[in-house]
Nucleic acid binder design. Structure first.
Lengths: 232, 232
DNA sequence: CGTGGCCTTGAATGTATTCAACGGGGGTGG
DNA sequence: CCACCCCCGTTGAATACATTCAAGGCCACG
C-alpha cells in the first residue's frame, strides 16, 4: 500500500476516529488491488467477505433478476460500499463492477466486525457512514421515481456545471452509454433527451457541454437539496 | 404509556442492549400518541426532531417533487423510521402519514443522539437497525426497477400467502387502492394486473384471495430472497 | 331509495424500450 | 499511408408498459 494512501485512508471519516491499535489491526489483513475496467468485483448473493474502499476510479453497483439488470448506484473515491452487508454478515444485495480502472482497498469483513465490537469510536463512525449511504439511496430512489429521463438529465447537467465552476462550459467526463445507464435509461433514450434539452439552451457536442442559461435549464430541472444535494 | 408497551419497546433490538440509565433518560422525554388515519406525521424538508417508533397501525413513507408523489416504503409494528435523519441531525428526506390509525412513540432526536454518544451499546444497536433499513430500501428499489407491475403483484401475493399459512387462501387485509400505491402503480393498473394473473390460477373476489397453485404463480413471480426476504 | 366511494373497464396518451439501420471517428493491419 | 473495421452515437419505427381521463357498476350507508 502506498504511503500517502495510508494517510488518506486514515483521514476518511469512517476511520479517522479509530484508536491506533484498531486501525493497525484493521490494516493487517487489508490489501490493495488494481482492477482493469469492466471487472466484476462482487456478485449479489455471495457472502460479504470484504468491505471495499474505492481509492481511485469508478465502481458501479447493479442488481439483476430474471435476466434483467439495473444500475443501482455509482461509487467514486473515496467511499466504501457494501458496508451494511459486512456489518450484518449477510449476503451482498448488489453486484459491483469497475467502470474505469480502479484501485480498491479490501478489508476483511470479520476484522471490520471485530473492531466494530471492540472500538466504540468505530461504531459511531459506521453509524454516520451508514446514515449517509442510506440517505444517498433514498435520494437516488426519489430521483428515479419522481422524475422522467429528461428531468434527470437536466439535473445531472446542472450539478456537473456547478462542480466545474458554474460557468456553463464543461466536459462530460463519461461515455454517453455509461451516463445513460447511470441515469437509468438506454443510450438511445439519452440521445433523445439531449435533443429535447436544446429548447432549454443546452448544447452537447461530443463530450463538450454548453449551458446557455442555468436559469432556463433550472426552470425545467427544478433541483432541490432533498434530492440533489449529496451533503444533505 | 402502557406498561406492556414499555416492556415491548425495551425488547426491541434497537433498545434491548441499552444500559438502564440510558433507557430511562431516553424515555424521560418520550411520549406516545394515537393518530387517526391519513394524518401527516412529518413533512420532508423539516428538521428531524423526533425518532418515531410505530407500535400499532401502519405508516406510509412517501416523497414529493414538482407536484408528483410516490410511496417509498410502508412501516408496520414494531419498527422505527427516520433513524438516519435523527442521527445525522439532518432534514427528513421523506414525508410520513398514517394509513390506518396508528400508535406511535416519539423520542426526541436530541436525546437519541446524546445517548448514542454516551452508550456504546446503543451505537451498536443503531448500526444494526440502520443496516436493516438500508437493505430494505435496496430490496424495495430492486423490486421496483427490475419487475413490472404484474410481477410485483405476484410476489406480493406469494409472500402474503406464506404469512397466512401457505394454504392458498387468505384475506387481502388492505384496500386495493392502497395496495396499488404500495406496489407502485395506479388503482386501474392493479385491476388489470389482477385480471392478468387469472391465467396463473389467481382468483381475487373482493378481498378474498385464492391461489390455486403456488407453483404456477411462482413460475411467473420468480421470488428470490435477495429481493423478497425481509430477514436477508 | 338516493348517494358517495371504491372498483372496474375502455380508450387515448405518454414515456421509455427494443429492434434495425446508418454515419463517423479512431485504431489496426496490410 | 491508406483501407478497413469496429464501436459509439444517433435516428426512425414498432412495441411495451403504465398513466390519465371518462364512464359505469356495485355495495354500504344514511
Amino acid at each position: 500500500m502506498r504511503r500517502n494512501e495510508l494517510a488518506e485512508i486514515q483521514a476518511l471519516p469512517l476511520f479517522s476516529g479509530l484508536r491506533d491499535d484498531s486501525f493497525e489491526s484493521l490494516l493487517r489483513g487489508a490489501y490493495v488491488q488494481n482492477f482493469p475496467p469492466q471487472i466484476e468485483l462482487i456478485r449479489e448473493g455471495d457472502p460479504a467477505d470484504f468491505l471495499h474502499v474505492v481509492v481511485e476510479g469508478t465502481v458501479e453497483l447493479f442488481a439483476s433478476w430474471n435476466g434483467r439488470e439495473t444500475t443501482m448506484a455509482t461509487v467514486r473515491p473515496i467511499a466504501t460500499f457494501i458496508l451494511a452487508a459486512t456489518i450484518k454478515d449477510g449476503p451482498y444485495l448488489m453486484s459491483a463492477r469497475t467502470v474505469e480502472k480502479a484501485r480498491i482497498i479490501l478489508l476483511p469483513s470479520i476484522d471490520v466486525r471485530n473492531i466494530f465490537e471492540a472500538d466504540a469510536n468505530f461504531a459511531k463512525a459506521i453509524v454516520l457512514e451508514l446514515s449517509q449511504c442510506y440517505r444517498s439511496v433514498i435520494k437516488a430512489s426519489k430521483d428515479m421515481k419522481l422524475r422522467n429521463s429528461v428531468e434527470r438529465l437536466a439535473n445531472y447537467l446542472l450539478k456537473k456545471d456547478i462542480e466545474n465552476g458554474g460557468n456553463g462550459q464543461f466536459d462530460l467526463s463519461i461515455e454517453k452509454r455509461r451516463l445513460a445507464s447511470y441515469l437509468g435509461m438506454t443510450a438511445e433514450n439519452l440521445s433523445r433527451a439531449i435533443k429535447s434539452l436544446k429548447d432549454y439552451g443546452v448544447e452537447i457536442e461530443g463530450s463538450k457541454v454548453t449551458i446557455k442559461s442555468a436559469e432556463t435549464l433550472g426552470s425545467l430541472a427544478k433541483p432541490t437539496p432533498l434530492i440533489d444535494d449529496p451533503a444533505y
